[in-house]
Design a protein around this nucleic acid. Structure first.
Lengths: 216, 216
DNA sequence: GTCTATAAAGGGATAGAC
DNA sequence: GTCTATCCCTTTATAGAC
């Protein structure tokens, strides 16, 4: 009983601060803002958490543990590269739906937080994320599911950023489900927006003005 | 002579603060940080600028004026939808190259800054940006350059976010030119990463597990 | 679990000398 | 164009009463 009561209040405060960190930014949210929102005074927060930093730490690591646990399950399944890609993208959008505030905080603050020792695990997760995606992409190119001659590092960054940046406009409970957005996103990523009759590789089809400017 | 001297120093301070705002975040950068970097004391900054807010305001509006001036030129040219799309994407990556710090600040801070009256022009620019992209996409669907039945609002957000978020990893003067990144990006956006033999619409080709979960 | 009260540090900005 | 000196406010965090 007592433990439930304690952790319930704790979790309430954590959810509430996650919302404020996501909406206003971690740095711009003061412990007084959090306390006001909870209807208590700022000093009382320190009964539950040792510091503001500890709060955002718990928010982020909870989200990341959940995400990577799901990713590892997918990678352990016996799927082709294309199916793995589809599954990971769907899982990512579902995670944006489920951990919306945490994902928003991660997107906005990870780069700065990761510079401090305490949040070095953010860099580790980034490495793990890259390895996972490279594996899927390389396997897909080998098997012929994806086009050859792709710059896989660029494709990786492209996919990573395009998926997660959706947290900026996606709204849980809104008109589009995570699965629907994932499907449309995969549609573009895999097949492009060009019509079949208009379809052509950019290297062949891009306007002369663009081609002239290329150097690399 | 005197005017040049004044504006040169002013511009130095503006460039330097843009770098710090981009690297550390606007809120996390203090006027003392800026002054330290410039080798002067914080009070001296107020000889050049009325406030810290005025500095970031000037950085952002300079960048946006330049960007939209280029966009308007492109839209005034007599191009097909696909060529317009290519030109606008290339121009955007060139702008990331040219105004790297300003774009980074815009990406990280615009959402929060736009809530204050002073930065309401950020919302106006966002509207203008959306109108421009919708025009290109609608024209392309009508002309048959782009696939029919696309959710154009989603495609717009997809393109907007994927282009600008590249500021997080793109480095001016690095191994990839803006034009090269633009070309690869357009390649994926227009034709996808799927190989020709593996190619199929997601609605038909997605794994059953994904289709089952869709609700909308 | 929350409050009162306050410490200690750091924030943006200003006035006037040089 | 910069410095000296400082104001006033807000910040995170703490100690101990209730």
């Amino acid at each position: 009983m007592k433990r439930d009561g304690v952790s319930r209040r704790r979790q309430e405060l954590l959810d509430l601060s996650a919302r404020l960190f996501a909406e206003r930014g971690y740095g711009a949210t003061t412990v007084r803002d959090i306390a006001d929102e909870a209807g208590i005074l700022s000093g009382s927060l320190y009964h539950h958490f040792p510091s503001k930093e500890a709060m955002v730490d718990e928010i982020l690591s909870t989200f990341l543990d959940d995400l990577f646990s799901s990713y590892r399950e997918i990678m352990a399944r016996d799927l082709g590269a294309r199916q793995k890609l589809e599954a990971v993208v769907v899982e990512s959008f579902e995670c944006i739906d489920k951990h919306h505030h945490a994902v928003a905080i991660f997107q906005n603050e990870a780069k700065h937080l990761a510079q401090s020792e305490r949040f070095s695990y953010l860099n580790d997760r980034g490495q793990e994320f890259r390895a996972l995606w490279r594996q899927i992409l390389e396997e897909g190119v080998r098997s012929g599911a994806f086009r050859p001659h792709l710059d896989l590092d660029l494709v990786f960054r492209f996919i990573r950023d395009t998926v997660w940046v959706a947290v900026r406009w996606y709204r849980p409970g809104g008109p589009l489900s995570a699965q629907n957005v994932a499907a449309q996103y995969l549609d573009i990523l895999l097949d492009g927006i060009s019509s079949r009759r208009g379809r052509s590789r950019v290297a062949n089809g891009m306007s002369p003005a663009v081609k002239e400017k290329q150097r690399a």
